[in-house]
């Protein structure tokens, strides 16, 4: 590191870049503005869109992807990637379903099983990435395939039904008129926000993504933080798998297919930068809601699935383009 470039005088001492107020505002709240615009558009096109039932509906539908996306946000901020989330959902789904059979174990056992399975896959990912120095893309790609295989092996390829009512409550129930998945999503959102913004761990996550070398020199235990990050992402995938299982009342080895990509999309739309060091929980939640609002609105209007996919692709590309523009300015 000491024989690298000599002169780095590309920043003049004139001080800060000047930016227009609108640009600053858009940078900060850009995706929120887009979400509101999208909601307004949907309401204009389909009056049924804007009623409290439907809004609750959208948030509940996005809870699973949203929870996964929050975990993925941590990972992407460290400039990593997690492709295994969807398969971890499936693995959790079938294992949890066996612990949630009517008249067997108390509910807490199933919940703990979800947390344990998810976290275990995450620890494994994190260990190989941080200690083994293997690229996150490769490690999680391997986990994506292996976890799906394990789920199929464990379930024999068949769905597992017969889940207890108390377990199903986690996916289908309401507390004070609010669906349980939304409550879990909200708790995870708040906890993750605090973790990322108010704790040492969170600062280290940003530091590693911002400059891993500098973080190491600042005394950050990079290996440990990375393992924790992947473990947390795995744990959240596990919880997401639990909610999905409870919601559809069935442990499914094929559940969660491609969810990892939706989760990454939500994070990226929400402003998380794939180059690391940038991203927020709020942004990711907005990103998930943008996907949810779009899916829901297009369903209401009976727009074909083909168009839905094309639009999602366009939004992701635009989000990444905005991100790239932001970086270019510097």
């Amino acid at each position: 590191m000491s024989n690298l470039s000599t002169v780095t005088n590309n920043t003049s001492d004139a001080g800060l870049h000047k930016e227009s107020k609108a640009a600053v505002l858009f940078k900060k709240y850009g995706m929120l503005i887009i979400l509101i615009a999208l909601i307004a558009l949907m309401t204009a096109l389909e009056p049924n869109f804007i009623n409290s039932n439907n809004i609750i509906n959208i948030v509940r539908q996005m809870a699973v992807i949203g929870i996964v996306a929050i975990g993925v946000t941590f990972v992407i901020i460290t400039s990593g990637i997690d492709l295994s989330s969807g398969s971890v959902i499936a693995l959790t789904s079938v294992i949890v379903a066996t612990f949630a059979q009517e008249g067997t174990y108390p509910l807490i056992v199933a919940v703990l099983a979800a947390v344990a399975v998810g976290a275990a896959t995450g620890v494994f990912n994190g260990f190989l990435i941080a200690k083994g120095n293997i690229a996150p893309f490769i490690v999680t790609l391997g986990m994506m395939t292996a976890a799906r295989g394990l789920a199929l092996l464990f379930s024999g390829g068949r769905p597992i039904g017969g889940l207890s009512d108390s377990f199903q409550f986690l996916g289908q129930g309401m507390i004070l008129g609010i669906p349980v998945p939304i409550i879990i999503f909200a708790i995870i959102g708040i906890v993750s926000y605090v973790l990322l913004n108010k704790t040492k761990f969170g600062k280290y996550v940003y530091a590693i993504g911002g400059n891993e070398q500098a973080a190491m020199i600042a005394g950050v235990n990079v290996t440990k933080v990375k393992i924790l990050v992947y473990s947390y992402a795995g744990l959240l995938s596990g919880l997401a798998g639990m909610i999905l299982t409870a919601r559809i009342a069935s442990g499914q080895p094929t559940a969660g297919t491609m969810y990892e990509l939706d989760a990454i999309a939500a994070a990226v739309i929400g402003g998380t930068s794939l180059t690391g060091g940038i991203g927020t929980i709020g942004g990711t939640v907005i990103g998930a809601l943008i996907i949810g609002v779009m899916n829901n609105g297009l369903d209401l209007m009976n727009v074909s699935s083909y168009w839905q996919q094309i639009l999602k692709g366009v939004i992701i590309t635009v989000a990444v383009y905005i991100d790239a523009r932001k970086h270019k300015k510097k």
């Binding site: 389909e46 049924n48 869109f49 009623n51 039932n53 439907n54 509906n57 539908q61 699973v64 769905p159 999905l244 919601r247 559809i248 069935s250 499914q252 094929t254 559940a255 297919t257 899916n295 829901n296 369903d299 209401l300 209007m301 009976n302």
Partner: peptide, 15 residues
């Protein structure tokens, strides 16, 4: 997919 069928039905109901 069961979960996707469920989501789609929820949205249809809102229409």
């Amino acid at each position: 997919d069961r979960a996707k069928g469920m989501t789609l039905m929820e949205n249809w109901l809102q229409s």
